[in-house]
Design a protein around this nucleic acid. Structure first.
Length: 296
DNA sequence: TACCAGGATGTTG
DNA sequence: CAACATCATGGT
């Protein structure tokens, strides 16, 4: 099996990325095992089981464990990982800004090299944003787990099952009562059905989003039923990687600020705006590091 | 046991 | 435009 090298950027810690990736025991779309990320892809209906690891502590290697994919498939998966771990971004400007920021300075030190872990798949990001609305993360993960275990494509490796996220057609085939069993609210099912249909009919097309700037893309996203301000910024941050995406009303962000500032209640919107005034152009990374700070 | 959770939408005043 | 009701259930 061949190994593909992936270029590592300058401010980068694979270990910090793994720590973030490993935050939920209910994650089913990938696993972190023995300092390696293992993830299943389905390309042209074929399972391709991959892993990413650090060789000799410095060089990122991508390898395939069940078969040798074609060159174009290799390229797709390589790009997926590069996007997922945000390997293309240069963090120097963010770190420079953060070093001057009281709130962020300790975080860039503590989590040095952490990359904004994204969700490269647009449909998965939409569904995850909708699932996560107004419920705690633990619950959100358990809902996603039920969905993925039941309706994701599976592949077994060394006695363990790996999964792919269900596609829109599969999602549309799920009955309302089954969604209810998996603890989806009826509202969320309505949102997901409509958006799944839009993607199948190509009323909504991911490529058009890629070509839009931040505010145009946000406007389009909010036009989708079930995608509000928070979800739009979340998707712009995790999938389209706009550095200024800022899910400002996020409960986790507010709790992180409360914790970092030692407040006895969550800060209000205006004080968050004030704090974040100096983060302009780096709001996504600032948010991500603050989220990270909630875990320890 | 209330209250909160990585919200969104529709209605009401 | 702001304030509230509703969803819908697990976590703390």
């Amino acid at each position: 099996m061949k190994n593909i090298s992936i270029k590592t950027p300058s401010i980068f810690s694979f270990k910090e990325c793994l720590k973030f990736l490993n935050r939920s025991a209910d994650e089913r779309l990938f696993f972190v095992e023995k300092e390696r990320i293992r993830k299943l892809f389905f390309l042209e209906s074929q399972p391709i089981f991959s892993e990413l690891y650090l060789e000799n502590g410095k060089e990122l290697k991508l390898s395939f464990l069940n078969k040798n994919p074609s060159e174009s498939q290799v390229q797709i998966i390589k790009e997926y990982y590069e996007n997922w771990l945000d390997l293309q971004s240069d963090l120097q400007q963010f770190y420079k800004m953060a070093a001057e920021d009281k709130l962020l300075r300790p975080l860039i030190k503590k989590y040095y090299g952490l990359r904004l872990i994204g969700i490269p798949d647009f449909y998965e990001a939409i569904c995850w944003a909708i699932i996560g609305q107004q419920i705690n993360l633990k619950f959100a993960y358990s809902v996603k787990k039920s969905l993925v275990e039941r309706f994701g494509s599976k592949f077994e490796f060394e006695g363990k099952l790996y999964y792919d996220f269900p596609d829109p057609a599969t999602m549309l085939s799920i009955k309302n009562e089954t969604f209810a069993e998996m603890k989806f609210s009826r509202q969320k099912v309505t949102y997901i059905r409509a958006i799944s249909n839009d993607l199948l009919n190509q009323t909504v097309d991911i490529e058009t989003f890629r070509n839009l700037d931040y505010s145009a893309a946000k406007k389009e996203l909010i036009g989708l039923h079930g995608i509000g301000n928070w979800s739009a910024d979340y998707i712009l941050m995790k999938t389209f990687r706009h550095p200024q995406a800022f899910p400002i009303q996020d409960a986790g962000l507010q709790n992180a600020l409360k914790k970092q500032l030692g407040l006895n209640k969550k800060p209000d919107l205006s004080s968050i705006l004030q704090l974040s005034n100096q983060w302009k152009g780096f709001e996504a990374y600032a948010t991500f590091y603050l989220w990270r700070s909630l875990n320890d």
